[in-house]
Design a protein around this nucleic acid. Structure first.
Lengths: 155, 155
DNA sequence: GCTGAAAAGCACAACGG
DNA sequence: CCGTTGTGCTTTTCAGC
């Protein structure tokens, strides 16, 4: 199922489900202008096709005691396939790292990190990240505040 | 409602709702070990307190024709409050920019951008971003692949 | 605070246009 | 493809513990 196969109603469905992932099917059907059963069939099809990957609650970090968001640009000592894979595997196990990308340019990885405070983040950078056998360089960017939050996919 | 006010069951609820935002209240109640009505009351309380900010469908970018994810580190010419605010406001209007943070260090803003292809992204960087009156420097990092996706908040 | 029961609303399958 | 119908489950409220 590619984008070209989606019609105007599918696009509306995706827009609404991004906005509110817990909307009821009947309300969704109303909003997109069809009756409930075909609407549900479309949603299931989008899920099965992998266009919709899942539904998730979005939590407020600060209110849960995670006051710090930072990005780390990590360069490895070697960029062989096995080194990249080994580091990517380690990233999975570090709870501070919420998202990670392999990137081109000066660094090899970009990590989005969340921590309770600056001390916890620095401990992670010094004791875990720079201490890692694969890691060569680490540059960090502390965020001051998030200025755009829910960049929904503009389908 | 602060983190200290959350008990073990609230934590379990948050964990489950992050994992599956469309889980039924009955199943959620089973998983966390209480009956459905108090479970729903807890969820509502977490929503009203702003701990749960919302529920959203997660879409597959590549399958919708967005094959490129990139980060832009943007430095402004001036860092006065009005300049920072003016640029933050512009960021809201650019659909390619899905998330944005104000950061410290060499750059002033970090933008997570999504585009259909490299050409569309370069057009945005050259014709929109670097052409902006506030922008001084733009450094981009193209992502090769995402290696960690759903870093749930480990409450 | 939790549990249990009852009413309204919803999801989902089957069938027909 | 969409819509209508019908059944079973879920949500949600209201008592009672």
């Amino acid at each position: 199922m590619l984008r070209a196969e989606l019609d105007a109603i599918d696009i509306k469905i995706l827009r609404e489900l991004q906005r509110d992932g817990r909307i009821t099917n009947v309300e969704l059907a109303e909003r997109v202008g069809i009756s409930a059963p075909p609407c549900l069939r479309r949603v299931r099809k989008l899920e099965e096709a992998g266009v919709i990957e899942g539904y998730h609650a979005l939590l407020n970090g600060p209110r849960l005691g995670f006051d710090l968001v930072a990005f780390c640009m990590v360069g490895l000592k070697r960029q062989s396939d096995s080194d990249l894979k080994a580091f990517a595997a380690k990233v999975q196990q570090w709870p501070l790292v919420r998202e990670a990308w392999m990137v081109n340019g000066d660094s090899d990885f970009l990590l989005r990190c969340v921590a309770e405070n600056l001390t916890a983040f620095q401990d992670f950078v010094i004791e875990v990240l720079t201490a890692d056998e694969h890691v060569d360089t680490v540059r960090t960017m502390l965020t001051i505040r998030q200025v755009k939050q829910l960049g929904l996919v503009e389908v």
